[in-house]
């Protein structure tokens, strides 16, 4: 049980050979309003549901190698690596909770957001039909499952964030956010008397420690934290989630925040919660924090908790229409 499983994934060629995109498929960028993203987004979902980003795999392996060989923490991280290999090889979901689907789309002027919504929804329905996504959209009160991953009332699932930019290419990022990890996310309002947390960086630190201790293993630790400091109740949460998209191991552009993140990550890993809450030294894989504006009267700390199976990916349509994927 205690041999180190090496995370050998299928090669880029094999991944490409399983693509739902016909060989040589290219988007016609001269007709932005007439683009159809359905197929290339279905391919994005096929990849995100079955393949973890390399930086997440590297962090899990690093965590495992630091645990005592044969310990529960070591074996659990080893099983996570085994699971990563299997899901990739079989093109099957890494986790049965394929999450809520959140898209971030950045596009040039002339692109139709209305058309893109329709196409990305179609991609989600197709991925659901192919058992790459579990139908995760139920009526709140009755619990009735729509079966298609579509919001039975409005058009709020999948969730979309659009941004028009001055570049010629298009980026579609997606996150599959599991329910267990979503449930252990937390938003604090400072000052917090119970925690003894004031309106300063020490207070923020206390909130984060508290959230991780309350989460224990229930959000499928080791977790990845996106933390926004400030904003309002909505913008804070929105940013916190988006911060989870940041690659692990990349430095925060704000040197003060970078130092804060590194120290906090070290400290959180002394809590002893470990993988799945079994105990151990790997409680979080990383923290991504950012300071925002705030109303003088409000001070929110929003903490998005992502499980170890951090399924995220980006499709890029280059200026010449060539599609590429980052996993």
């Amino acid at each position: 049980m205690s041999e180190c499983v090496v995370p050998t994934l299928t090669s880029a060629e094999v991944v490409a050979s399983k693509s739902v995109l016909p060989e040589g498929w290219k988007a016609d960028m001269s007709n932005l309003a007439g683009l159809d993203l359905t197929l290339c987004a279905t391919e994005l979902l096929r990849r995100t549901t079955s393949r973890l980003p390399q930086d997440v795999i590297d962090a899990l392996v690093k965590g495992r190698d630091a645990e005592e060989p044969g310990s529960r923490a070591f074996n659990t991280l080893n099983d996570m690596v085994r699971n990563i290999i299997l899901a990739d090889g079989n093109v099957s979901p890494l986790c049965q909770d394929t999450g809520s689907i959140i898209f971030w789309v950045r596009h040039p002027f002339g692109f139709s957001q209305r058309a893109a919504r329709k196409q990305l929804r179609a991609a989600v329905m197709e991925a659901t039909k192919r058992s790459w996504l579990r139908p995760n959209c139920v009526e709140s009160l009755s619990g009735k499952n729509s079966g298609t991953n579509m919001d039975p009332f409005h058009d709020h699932h999948p969730a979309f964030h659009f941004e028009e930019w001055d570049q010629a290419h298009i980026e579609v990022s997606v996150m599959q956010k599991g329910g267990g990890s979503e449930n252990v996310g937390a938003q604090y309002r400072l000052p917090d008397a119970a925690l003894g947390a004031g309106r300063d960086i020490k207070g923020v630190r206390k909130c984060i420690i508290d959230a991780v201790v309350k989460a224990q293993g229930q959000g499928c630790s080791p977790g990845i934290l996106g933390v926004s400091i400030g904003g309002d109740r909505v913008t804070g949460w929105e940013r916190a989630k988006e911060l989870v998209l940041r690659k692990l191991g990349t430095a925060n552009p704000d040197p003060k925040m970078d130092a804060f993140e590194k120290e906090l990550t070290r400290d959180l890993n002394t809590l002893g919660i470990g993988p799945m809450g079994y105990g151990g030294a790997t409680t979080v894989l990383g923290v991504s924090a950012e300071e925002m504006y705030r109303h003088p009267a409000s001070f929110y700390v929003s903490i998005a908790y992502m499980c170890w199976s951090s399924r995220r990916g980006t499709l890029t349509l280059a200026a010449d229409g060539q599609p590429s994927y980052d996993l």
Binding site: A87, L94, Q96
Partner: peptide
């Protein structure tokens, strides 16, 4: 948790299902 593929491999067969229509 999260080992969805690994654990599905240990499922030999689906014997039956109840309340599928009602619960999803």
């Amino acid at each position: 948790g999260g080992a969805g593929s690994l654990l599905a491999e240990r499922v030999k067969r689906v014997v039956d299902v109840k309340m599928l229509e009602e619960f999803g």
